[in-house]
């Protein structure tokens, strides 16, 4: 699980071009949207593509995304339950 969280933080920084962040800067329970990492609607869509590409999870309902992209902690739990690759 810790390895998955680290992997997720690396992908988020890389995929979403968070130039000023390192893995250490992101706590497992940091809010991804809003005040936390300050992600926006395009980032949310990009995370949906990442879930599909890296873990074989297809989210088609944007509201489902909202519940999953709360924090790295929540995201990692969701992925470990639903991943197909």
């Amino acid at each position: 699980m810790d390895a998955l969280k680290k992997e997720l933080k690396e992908s988020i920084i890389e995929q979403l071009n968070l130039e000023d962040f390192t893995v250490e800067d992101i706590a497992d329970d940091d809010t991804l949207f809003g005040d936390g990492l300050g992600l926006d609607s395009i980032d949310a869509l990009e995370l949906i593509v990442m879930l599909d590409k890296d873990y074989g999870i297809k989210l088609t309902d944007p509201n489902e995304g909202k519940a999953v992209f709360v924090s790295v902690e929540v995201l990692a739990t969701y992925i470990s339950k639903h991943r197909t690759k």
Partner: peptide, 9 residues
């Protein structure tokens, strides 16, 4: 086949 919204925009 993974079009990226962050690129498309």
């Amino acid at each position: 086949y993974f079009p990226s919204p962050a690129v498309f925009v």
